[in-house]
Design a protein around this nucleic acid. Structure first.
Lengths: 334, 334
DNA sequence: TTTTGTATTGTTAACGGTAACATTACCACA
DNA sequence: TGTGGTAATGTTACCGTTAACAATACAAAA
C-alpha cells in the first residue's frame, strides 16, 4: 500500500528513456527533442513526480535552506525579524529553517547540530554566547554565519544589531526628563540583552542620583506578568511613579493593571516599553517605547548571508542599527 | 580556505579504522571495543565532526522532519498552534519545518513541493482547498497528512479543527442577547474560515430579524485596520451599537479607536473578537471573544501524525474541538 | 589440538539525482 | 561516398552514511 513516491527512474521507464533525459527536461526542456517533451511532461503529471533534493544535498552539500536560530518563536519580537529574513531569502529561492532554543545554551547547541545536519547553507544566530562544542561546529561547518540582535556582542561573527544598553539608558533618561523619579525596571528572561537593558537603566538612574529597583524573573514575559509585577511593586515601593519594561508585553500588562486599579497613567505613574510593537503604537494611551528595527535587522542579515553565499567572504563586521525613542502618552508630557 | 566539513571517513582515517566502526561508535558505543572508544571520541572532538543527515534521508527517505504549512507565521493565532505542534514533536526528536503561503493556493502548492522535496516525513496543512497539482503531490508523497483549523472542512484528509460558523453564530447571538442590535461584522483576509464566520454571523442576525452589515478587505487584519473600519462604520452606519470582529486584533484596534473618540464601550458600542489571545483576556475592558483551543489543536495534530509515522494508518476522521464564548466586559452586561 | 562461538571490525551496495564524458544518429558538405 | 559536425541521448561515477553480510581474531570447550 505504501507506494513510495515516484523517482526520475519511474518517469523514465514510463517514457522509455533514461532518467538523465528526464532530468534534462526538468531543468532545461530545450535540451530534449520535441518528440519527447510532451511524453515526458505527460509521464511526470501522470505519476505526480515530486522533486527530491536529498541527492543534490548529498552530492553538493547545498540544501538551499538557511537556518535561523531564535530564542523563541512565539515572541512577537522575533516574528518581525523572521518576516525581514524571509522577505529577502524567499525571492532568492532559499527556504528558511526556523528553530528555537528557549534561551538555553545547551538547547542551542543541539539546534545548531540539527540545522547543520540538514546541511543548511548558512546560519543566522541570535546569541553571542555558545557552548564550546557549538563554537567548534560553527567553525567546522564551513557555512556563513551571522549574528543578530546585539550590536555590542563580543562575538567573532559578523554582527547586526542594536545597542540595547544605550537604548535603555536613553529611554530611562527620557522618563526622568519628563518628571518621573522613582522608576522601577521590569525584567524577564534575564538573557544577555535584558541584562544590558538593565545596565543602561541603572546607568541613567545613577547619573541622576536616583535609586534603581529591578523586578526580575527568569520566566517569559507576558501581559499577566506585567500586571503581577505592578501589584507587587505598588506594595513594595508605594512611591513608584514610573515603570520601564524590558518589552511592550510587560508594559501593556502593567498599564492595564493600572487602569483596573484606577491609577492615572501617566499622571500618577509613567509606563514605557521596549520594541514598539503595533499595539503599543495603536493603544490608548499611546505607549512610550523604544522602537527597534527588527524587520530591517532580519533583512540586512539575510542580505549579508546572500553575499556570503555568492562567494564573497563575510568579513567580521559590526553593524549597529538605530533605534528610536517614542515618547507616547504613557509618560508625562514635558 | 573553504575546508569542507569533516566526514566519518576523515574521522576514521585519523583513528585508523573504517568509517563503519566510527558510525557504530556514534550510534551505539557498546559495539566498539574499549580500546577504540576513547580514540574515536577524541578524533570526533578534534575534527569537530557534525552528523550529516543527507545520506540517510536519501537512502531511507526519512528526514525526521515534519512540514507545517500555515497561511502566516506572524499571526499570533498560528504561533500558538506551532507551540502545540512542537510541544509534541520535539520530545520525539522531530524537527518542524515551517512554511507559510500568505493565503494563496499557488504559493501553497509551491510550499508543499518544497517541503516534500526535503523529504519531510509528514505534513500538517491548514487549508482544505488545494490546487489539483498539490493534491496529486499529496497523494503521491506517501506521507501522513493532516489538516487543522476547520472542522467543517470537506477535505478527504484527517481533520482537527473547530466549527467557525457555529462559533460566530453563538457569539453574535450572545451579543444580541446582551442587548446589542445593529451589529457590524469586521472581516479581513476573506479566507475560507473568515467566510464561515461571516456566515455564522449572518445566520444569527437573520434569526433575530436583524440586518447584517459586513466590512471586509482582502488585506491582513491589524490594530490599525480595526480602527479604520470603526471610523468608516460610524459614518456609514451611525446607529451601529455592536462590532464583531473576525479576530482580536481588529477588535482591539476598534476598541482603542472608540476610546480615542470617547465612545463608551460597551454602553454605546459593544465589541467582540475571536480567538481569545492573551491580551484580550488581560485588557481593560476585558474583551468579549471566542476562545479557540489553538495549542491543543496543534498538539492533537502532532500526536495523530506520530501515530501515522509509527505505522498506524491515519484514518479519515474529523475531530471537532470545543471553543468557548467569553463574554468579557466589552459587551453589555446582561 | 581442533572446533565452535562470539566479539569486533571490515566490505559491499544502495539511496536518487546530476556532472562529465561517451555514444549514437542524422544531416550537410566536400 | 565518406567526413565532420552537431543535436540528442546514454553511461558511469559520485556524494556520506548505514544495512546486510563477510571476515577475522581470540577464547572457551571438546
Amino acid at each position: 500500500m505504501k507506494k513510495k513516491r515516484p523517482t526520475l527512474q519511474d518517469v523514465a521507464d514510463l517514457v522509455g528513456v533514461t532518467k538523465m533525459t528526464v532530468s534534462r527536461f526538468i531543468r532545461n526542456p530545450e535540451q530534449v527533442s520535441d518528440a519527447l517533451r510532451d511524453k515526458i511532461q505527460t509521464a511526470l503529471d501522470e505519476l505526480g513526480y515530486i522533486p527530491n533534493r536529498a541527492p543534490d544535498i548529498l552530492s553538493k552539500s547545498k540544501s538551499h535552506a538557511i537556518g535561523v536560530l531564535l530564542p523563541s518563536l512565539t515572541n512577537q519580537v522575533f516574528a518581525e525579524v523572521i518576516r525581514g529574513i524571509e522577505a529577502v531569502l524567499e525571492p532568492e529561492g532559499y527556504q528558511t529553517m526556523l528553530a528555537h532554543f528557549g534561551y538555553s545554551q545547551e538547547l542551542e547547541e543541539q539546534r545548531i547540530a540539527t540545522l547543520l545536519s540538514y546541511n543548511v547553507d548558512a546560519l543566522i544566530l541570535s546569541e553571542s554566547q555558545h557552548t564550546p562544542k557549538a563554537q567548534k561546529m560553527l567553525e567546522n561547518a564551513g557555512v556563513p554565519v551571522i549574528e543578530i540582535m546585539d550590536s555590542t556582542s563580543k562575538s567573532p561573527l559578523h554582527v547586526i544589531g542594536i545597542d540595547n544598553c544605550s537604548a535603555a539608558r536613553e529611554m530611562t533618561q527620557t522618563m526622568i526628563d519628563h518628571g518621573h523619579r522613582n522608576i522601577v525596571y521590569f525584567a524577564a528572561r534575564m538573557d544577555e540583552r535584558t541584562l544590558q537593558k538593565v545596565e543602561g537603566y541603572k546607568q541613567a538612574m545613577a547619573a541622576n542620583g536616583l535609586t534603581s529597583v529591578v523586578k526580575e524573573t527568569h520566566s517569559a514575559s507576558s501581559f499577566t506578568l506585567g500586571a503581577k509585577f505592578l501589584e507587587e511593586v505598588l506594595s513594595e515601593h508605594p512611591d513608584t511613579d514610573g515603570i520601564f519594561c524590558t518589552n511592550d508585553d510587560l508594559a501593556i500588562g502593567a498599564l492595564y493593571a493600572c487602569q483596573k486599579k484606577g491609577l492615572q497613567v501617566p499622571e500618577q505613574i509613567g509606563i514605557a516599553g521596549f520594541h514598539g510593537h503595533d499595539i503599543a503604537r495603536a493603544m490608548v494611551p499611546l505607549l512610550a517605547t523604544v522602537v527597534t528595527p527588527r524587520e530591517e535587522m532580519g533583512r540586512l542579515a539575510a542580505k549579508a548571508l546572500l553575499k556570503g553565499l555568492q562567494g564573497e567572504s563575510i568579513k567580521k563586521q559590526v553593524i549597529e542599527l538605530p533605534y528610536q525613542i517614542e515618547c507616547g502618552e504613557s509618560i508625562k508630557a514635558l
